[in-house]
Amino acid sequence: MQLLTDTLLSGLVYGMLLFMLASGLTLIFSMMGVLNFAHASIYMLGAYFAFTISHYIGFWAALVLAPLACGLIGAAIEVWGLRRCHANGHIAELLFTFGLVFIFQRAVMMVWGTLAVPYQVPASLNFPLFQLYGQNFPAYRAFMLLVTALMLLSIWLLLKKTRIGLIIQAALTHPDMVSALGHDVPRVFTIVFAGGCLLAGLAGVIGGNYFSTDSGMADAMGPIVFVVVVFGGLGSLAGCFVASIFMGMVQTAAVMVNGSIASLFAPFGIALGGDSLLGEILTIPLARVSPLLPYVLMVLILFFRPRGLMGARDA
């Protein structure tokens, strides 16, 4: 029971952070069709910005300023970059973001050095909030949950209650129709791209100090966010949310299982294994293959349901 609660809680925190990254990506991906490989780089930038800002002004200023800076960078990328190669097709856009990944990676090293930066959880949030089964629950995790929940609420309000939100929603499922109706679709694109980058930056601010802030953090986060977006389905923020939480839970829960394929057969007196590739596959514990699970799940869902979990249209 204790293990279960703990797993669920960690899964929830991680899943919410994933959602913060994936929600922006899913909006960009669904509306503009751009597989934005640089999204995780923006997450990294957010963490580095937050490190510098919190060094000079303070964490709370960083919480506001760093995401804004990321949003501005996003807007600049969209206006001066992506928009120009939009006419050249989606693969051109994808390669554009590929190029950005290379540049951001080295730029971060050139500005902040090659070592990891000491970006720490602020002292005001660094205390145990309450005890659960004799184990502390750190306040910062509660804070992460709070920020992500607030973000979820504000996105929901923005999409449901504002005019631009309505247009974005419409553009998610019927981008051509929206533009046919005379809306300024490029402006909507810019807003969505900037907004997505802002969220990624925010994720960097609150995730960078909880995890670690180094030049490899984008590479570690990038692939899994893609999986979440595709798994959840294009054009569906709800699907993205469910997928984020699900993937967060799956990844944390799988490490708790020690069984392997061979152990499934053990009760029947069948001993599998042996010193071969097959034996290795059969006896490897599930906990060890947990990093594979998201990809397996993604391949499976795409194979049977190409639109993803709750996708509005085929991928």
């Binding site: 293990l3 703990d6 925190v13 060890r288």
Partner: peptide
């Protein structure tokens, strides 16, 4: 064995 560079939150391990 923990998957290389994949685990973000080790608290389930700590519980274990």
């Amino acid at each position: 064995y923990v998957p290389l560079g994949q685990v973000k939150d080790f608290s389930p391990y700590i519980t274990k």
